[in-house]
Design a protein around this nucleic acid. Sequence first.
RNA 1: GCCCCGGUAGCUCAGUUGGAUAGAGCACCAGAUUCCUAAUCUGGGGGUCACAGGUUCGAAUCCUGUCCGGGGUACCA
Length: 601
Amino acid sequence: MTRRGAPPRHRTTHASRQGTPLKASIASLLEHAVAAVPEFADAPDVTSIRATVERARDARHGDFATNIAMRLAKSAGMTPRDIAQRIIAAMPASELVDRVDIAGPGFINFTLSDEAFHREIGLILEQGEAYGRGEPREGPKVLLEFVSANPTGPLHVGHGRHAAFGATIGNLLQAAGYPVDREYYVNDAGRQMDILGVSVWLRMLEADGETIAFPDGGYRGEYIRDIAASIDRDGLPAVDIDKAFERLPPADDPDARVDALIEVAETLLGAENFDRIRRAAYGSILDDIRDDLAEFGVTFDRWFSEQSLTDEKRIDDELEVLGERRMLYEKDGATWFRATDYGDDKDRVVVRENGKTTYFASDIAYHYDKCQRGYELLIDVLGSDHHGYVTRVRAGLEAMGYAGDSLAVDFVQFVTLYRGGEKVQMTTRGGRFVTLRELRDEVGNDATRFFYVMRSNDQHLDFDLELAKSRSNDNPVYYIQYAHARVASVFRQLNEKELTHDRENGVASFSLLGESQEKALMSSLSRYPEIIELAAANRAPQHLVHYLRDLANDFHTYYNAHTFIVDDAALRDARLALIDAARAVIASGLEILGVSAPDSM
RNA sequence: GCCCCGGUAGCUCAGUUGGAUAGAGCACCAGAUUCCUAAUCUGGGGGUCACAGGUUCGAAUCCUGUCCGGGGUACCA
């Protein structure tokens, strides 16, 4: 499992008042009961009682179950069943609970009253799409960084998964009440930007009719030509190409060749002009990335420039602090950070022999900066090939005086595209990837967002284009959206029959809803707050995906089994109120996933 | 070598932080619509949770070891 910096558990101050999720209400009853038994007063597990309350998996076990009696057995020196007996005897009466039973080796099973569910559905109708969202929390203040792709080309399908996952995590944390900001780290400094500038310049020359052996390390996408065409040539000096290229290192050393080309460009054009091309290039690409993400429903609170770390002397500050703390030393002409003091495999270079700082030096400064801005939990969404960074960045944070575990990293595994059973070639000879935009154009934003988070982030993702596009029962996106559209359709039908829906009458008539499908739907709906909390705490959107699928199934089953628009007004109002609650929860869940909730399909 | 992730039904994957008889979709088989959208529903078969030990009332889940697949192990970003 990926290591996760778990946010501290929400401390609930509850009585079983309205607005408290069902599970918390049950946990509260249990806490009172345990506290009322003197023998358990100092049992070590009492503080985590809430965590022991679970939904029963089997209807025969009631609605909720706890294993608290088994957990207390050792410290209390009693058998689980005896403990369960004592706890049940001490349980305060509640209108939410019909029965409390002991089962199996010592489980305590709670069977809720109809009233408990009716209240919960009423609450959904009252709160609408706000239902299930956690109370705003003081902290930890979360900074969520994701995508952060280099602005050297358009986003591809791998970045898309990062975008969808990160955005959904952000929505989930926010829904659970955490204060969260989203940030994109823009790698606008260093050699990559120089290579980008050179690539554009070479394409400009080509457009002028020059023949140029394009270097291996350069960016050769078609978009580079487009950018080259858009560069304002006013003030650019004329260039004697042949002379400029005659001293280049041989092609079998691509790195040296690219570096030499950068130098040539800077000399011939002048540093200012070259910088202008470079900025135009990365500015245009970054605009494209920003648009692409915005169309995908992914937005950021801040775009943080790597270059600003240098400009604002943040890296200098960092090196000074590390130096004062004696965390640096010189070797082989470079400056090294004592990462091994903090558990890393080896020490790491922060200033190279050539005097330039490393990307790692920027990373420390950047994460240090995040801490200094007051964020208490830093979440980075990274590709799984970056796992080696975590230890050293944590080391950097600790050396700078912050807790290493304030950094949590969620790794996103690779994406493989399939068309039917066929694997899709993701890269072309020109080094071109299938872009996120192409994927979105082909399968649509909704299916794309959904499929990206359908699987656990640390699972390889097989993205089947045909399945994502299919408008059939194979496709879980449409399955869920269809449930939402069906509810809207029912209300349209109601309108056509010139009937109206009296919600208050419906809520007052919930006791008429005795069908098994109705009870199942109510139970599922009441789970929503638990799902939000679970998915947020684990940063695992797939919990929400699976929940919505199950919820849609409960709805479709109900739809097929019973008619909602019946003659009996009370029953009709009650049924319509129930499906309207289902509509609200589905809409809320889809919103968190960044998927639309259509009224018709 | 060392580090990270994964191994659960024919396929793709869940599994609520150690619970009760391991779940879902697809695929396969059999059914449902005079009625609110059949983009739907109902039923059925299908499992050595990679393997071997261990921890305990209880293990797919935790520990140790082994095997297989992917990734990483830069004075690149």
